[in-house]
Structure formats: structure tokens, C-alpha cells
Design a protein around this nucleic acid. Structure first.
Lengths: 342, 342
DNA sequence: TTGTAGGCGTTATCAT
DNA sequence: ATGATAACGCCTACAA
């Protein structure tokens, strides 16, 4: 038995012989309505299976209670963790999430942004695609005063906040750690991307070398797409180098693992011949043998922070302009892959 | 400079001295409108920065172009892959996604369902929480004729479709494979859950043993929460068993990996002493050594199928009642962890 | 081919 | 404490 007829406040009002205005007020617990009336309204609404119509409400109130999320990929450990964090905060605060992925394509990102805009999200959380440099597709949000927060893959945009970790510092720490283990010929595998994430990690690596008076060698900077397969390919390249590195710092764990496995297969001992460090603290880092030294990247917390920051702003509880950039703490986790001395 | 004033079809109509009806029709490319008028409308709309108001439209049309998704957890490899699949199809078809996680709690699931209902999703895709057995919180959807599709963690509900793999058959295949490798004392690590997923895998395991005239031993069925830590704990249990198994089939890869690592640490050789098989084809399965034999679970495809199925139904292109259950193909991937003979 | 006008369900403003 | 009523922006009979 289907009852497709939706109950509206008119139905409740007419049954109770009161006005829709009173019903509307009662339903939102307006203190101006008498307790008696409220109870009658609540009970009847419950009994008739009333549900409020968000669209009518949004149409009136010009708010949607919806947050848009655009990420490069949904199916990575890191990103799904971030999204779990966002969801938990948003859900608690009564906000809905609409989520889309750019698949690392700036064109998709533009379309996604437009969709979000047309859906009139109250605010937007974005992690940029690999090679997005022009941010003009986000201008419309600023024009309509819709708050925009970038996380992880961020970009300097005058009117938006950024939430990220200090990639430079983290990479500096990793590299220094490798140096402290006696390594001098340290390679770095990074992405062919201008994203802050990889640029900053490279900068941290470079600075650490310089601070320890180790000459930088261009040959030791290897560009890839950071996939596990790319790690294996990088391994082949490394095997053929004249001056093999004695340590490799990879910009993410997945790629590090691919590289490690391939080198091991070729008879290289880790960390004996080559020490290893990754980035992210992905689950694979505790599965690969030896376990991978890495940076713990607090994805869940980043999601929570981004969502909370945005919602606070929407509620007028905090000004987004004050905290233009929020840096989350990250930490070095030393595991066997880099312990040459113990 | 902010312009918060929204452009409506009224603005366009009055500027062009035509009616809103014509503008509305032109905007949706109604063939009844003259090309000339259409062009004028399009151009002006573009120029004025018009965007249609979904809420007004939804309020009229009683549709939302939104699909709700409820999953137990967002941050697992499998689930994020499924969601990526859903997103790609939904986005292509012009549907939005609103996503929430039950965190394996039936209470959360109920709240999520209610939220989805109040948001008037056009349809709902659900993977059930660990211990949901009563499905009455989904009755409201059926009452309003809102299509509901379960995937992976499903349940027999008269009015909904299920999309899953044949867990029983897959588990039967895994177990038979282990038997073919010469194993006779095969343990199974599963979840303390009545979910079809684990019940069916257990059934497949049991049947395979029976079909090969191997006596089932209750001691060989180990219950856990299937986390990596639980795998390690199971390993301790196994080490203390009088009659140690010579093979272990674990209901997911994560837990299998945790168990393998702990056993290896204790000096057990894999597959020599104990062969291993998991389930899901999670990335860790190709990182652990030896690589883990597993079942390839087509998560992305499952997401695509679920979304496509739902959208077809919403568009009236296919009846959901015809295909009440859709089984996706899964396949055994044999890797070193189970190859006793080669 | 275009226009008129009513209604989708809610909320805010003004009265009472 | 409650009611009447006008928006919110769009769509679609029906009329012209």
C-alpha cells in the first residue's frame, strides 16, 4: 500500500483548526507558541508522517545546509580518511555533503565546481587536481560570498583558507633523519606536479641536504606519478644508476612500497644497501618488510578541521579571515626501513 | 565586489520583454521556442550570470536528482572504491550524491536513513551496518515508492534489489583451492556478524570441506572483528592450538595480513607451514610477503552497477522488479601465499 | 510561437 | 499567542 501524498503543514493546520504559521512555528520549537499547541502539532505531525520539505524551506531561506566537497580521487586511503572526518563533523552539525571527484583533471574540477555552485552549496571544501594552477573557476564562489576552503592540495587564493600540514618541515625531518642514519646519497622520488604538496616536500629535502653540507645532485631527483607501478619503474632506473643512492625518500608510501619491492627482488638489502622513507602513514607502510619509515599525515583530523572551520564560519561563530592558514601537526614515524644503526 | 543578487528568469524575461514561461522553455531547450528567442535567452542568461534555482525546480517537480548513499565506513579501500564507482555514474547522469556513514552502528544507520528521507532523495543505495537485522527503518522509502538498493552487505527485503557477489561460491573456490594444494586442516577467520557476507563465506568454506570429505572442526572457525589487529590476535590463538591448521582462509585481506605478519614473526613459514588466503584483493595483498591469494572483489564495478541500476529505474528505463538480485563476477587470484606445490 | 496565472510548501512580516 | 498573506523561483496547463 503506497501513500504518495505528502503531508504538509496545511494538512496539519486544517486538522487542528489553526493557521499554517502557527504550525510552522510550533514545528521549529518557537518559544512564542504555547506548549499545548506545540504538543498537539508535534503529535499530529508524527502521527500523519509529516516531513518538512527542504526545498520549500531552502527556497525561502536561501540556505541549503549543504557542503560541497571536491577531491582529486575518492579511492585512496588518505582521501577516504579525510572524507570520513568531514562526514562525521558535517553530519553532527546537520549539514549534508555532496561529494565529487575531479579524477585529477582540471576540466572535471571546473565542471564539479559549477555543479556545486548550481546546487547552491553553503560552502565548499576542495583539494585540487594534480595540475590545476588557474583557480578562476572558483571565483564565482567568492562573488557570491560562498566560503571556500582548500585542504592538502591547496593554492594561494586571496579569499579562501588553507588547511594543510607543513610539508616542507616534514620532508626536512625525514631527510635529516636519513642523514642521521649515515646516508649521504639521498634520492627523492616526487611527482611531476606544481602542487604545493610536492614542491614543499622537495624544498624540505633540498634544505636538509644543504643544511648538512651535502651537495644536491639533480640526478637524485626522480619524477613519477607516484603510483605503486611508478615505484617499480623508478627502481629499475635506480638499479642502472652509476652512483646508486644509499637512501630514498619517496613522496608517498604507495610509491615507496612499489620501489622497495622491486629493489628487494633485485637483491638490494633494505635498509642495508638503501634506506627508505615514505610519506602518509598509509596502511601498507606497516605491511611491507621492512616496515616503512614515514610521516603520519592526520587525514581524519584534517577532514574534521576543515568541516568544523567551514561550519563555524557559516554560523558566524568565527571569522575565516582571521585564520587564513591552518597547519596540522604531522610527525615522523621511524621504522625499520631506515634504521641503519641500532 | 560582491553581487549577491541572484538572477532569475524574471530578470531575463523583463529585459527581453518576453514572458517567464518562454524563458523557462528556452532554457530547457524546448523545441517549441523559436531559435531566435532561444539564442537571445541563452546569451543574456550567460551574460547576466543566471543559474537556475534547484529548490524552486525541485519544489515544483517533486524530484531532487539526488541519490543517497549509506555505508558502514567510508575509509576502507573497498568502500572508497565502490563510492568512486557510484560517483562516476551518478555525476555523468546529472545526479548528486549525498553520502553518510553508519560507523557500523544500526542507530546511526536509522538516523542516516531518516536524514536521507527528509532530504527527499530520489533513490537510496545502502550497504548495511555490521549487525543490522531489523530493516524497518527503510520501510518509509517503500511507502513513498522510493527505490532502494542494497549492495555488498545486503538483506532480503521484499521491495528492494540486491547487488553483490556470490560470496558462497567465491569462498567455496578459495577453500577448494587450498585443498588442492594439499591442505586438510583449514581454519577460517570470520566476523561476529549475521551479515550475508560472512555467513555466505562461511557456508562456502563449510561446503567445500564437506564436498572433499574433510571433517569440519568447530575449533577451526575463529571469530573476530576482521581488523589487522584482530588478525594478529588470531595468530596468537593459532600458535597455541594443539592441532595447528595447515591453511587459513580469512574473510578479508586486512585481517589476513595482520595474521600472516604475526605468524611470520613467530617463525611460521608461509605457505610452507600454513598456507593463506584472504578476500577482497586489497592493495596490501600484493605488498605482504608472500603475496596473498585472494578473491578479486570488483568494488568500482559494483558502485557503477548499483548507481546505473538505480538511475535506470528512476528514468523508467528498466524495471527494478525484474532483476531482483544482481550478482557480479568475482575471481580467485592465486598468489604465493597458498602455493604449496609448484 | 508566446503569454497568463496558479501552485509547489515554507517562512517572515504585519496584524490582531 | 495566533492568523492572514505575501513572497521564494520555477514550471505547466490553458489560453491566445
Amino acid at each position: 500500500m503506497l501513500d504518495n501524498k505528502e503531508i504538509t503543514i496545511y494538512d496539519i493546520a486544517s486538522k487542528l483548526n489553526i493557521s499554517t504559521a502557527t504550525v510552522s512555528r510550533a514545528l521549529k520549537d518557537d518559544p512564542v507558541v504555547s506548549k499545548k499547541t506545540k504538543k498537539k502539532v508535534f503529535d499530529l505531525a508524527e502521527q500523519m508522517g509529516y516531513r518538512s520539505n527542504h526545498f520549500a524551506r531552502n527556497l525561502r531561506s536561501q540556505r541549503t545546509e549543504t557542503i560541497g566537497v571536491i577531491v582529486p580521487r575518492l579511492n585512496s586511503y588518505f582521501m577516504s580518511t579525510v572524507i570520513a572526518g568531514i562526514e562525521s563533523v558535517a553530519n553532527q552539525a546537520g549539514y549534508n555533503l555532496i561529494i565529487s571527484q575531479s579524477s585529477e583533471s582540471t576540466d572535471n574540477e571546473k565542471m564539479n565546481a559549477k555543479t556545486m555552485f548550481n546546487n547552491r552549496v553553503d560552502g565548499l571544501l576542495v583539494s585540487l587536481a594534480y595540475d590545476t594552477d588557474d583557480l578562476s573557476h572558483f571565483d564565482i564562489f567568492h562573488k557570491k560570498n560562498i566560503p571556500l576552503i582548500f585542504f592538502d592540495r591547496v593554492s594561494e587564493h586571496v579569499h579562501s583558507s588553507n588547511i594543510l600540514i607543513d610539508n616542507r618541515k616534514a620532508a626536512y625531518g625525514v631527510t635529516s633523519h636519513l642523514i642521521s642514519q649515515g646516508c649521504r646519497k639521498i634520492a627523492h622520488i616526487t611527482a611531476t606536479s606544481d602542487s604545493n604538496v610536492y614542491v614543499d616536500r622537495l624544498a624540505g629535502y633540498t634544505h636538509a641536504l644543504a643544511d648538512h653540507s651535502i651537495a644536491a645532485d639533480k640526478e637524485y631527483i626522480i619524477y613519477s606519478d607516484l603510483s605503486q607501478e611508478a615505484g617499480a619503474a623508478a627502481a629499475q632506473h635506480i638499479l642502472q644508476m652509476k652512483h646508486r643512492p644509499d637512501a630514498i625518500f619517496v613522496a608517498n608510501d604507495n610509491c615507496a612500497v612499489g620501489c622497495m619491492l622491486a629493489l628487494k627482488q633485485a637483491g638490494i638489502r633494505i635498509p642495508g644497501d638503501i634506506a627508505f622513507a615514505g610519506f602518509n602513514n598509509d596502511p601498507v607502510s606497516t605491511v611491507v618488510e621492512p616496515n616503512l619509515t614515514t610521516i603520519n599525515y592526520p587525514g581524519y583530523e584534517m577532514g574534521e578541521t576543515a568541516a568544523r572551520h567551514l561550519i563555524n564560519h557559516l554560523n558566524g561563530n568565527a571569522s575565516m579571515h582571521i585564520a587564513n592558514t591552518i597547519l596540522l601537526r604531522s610527525e615522523l614515524i621511524v621504522r625499520a626501513s631506515s634504521e641503519k644503526r641500532r
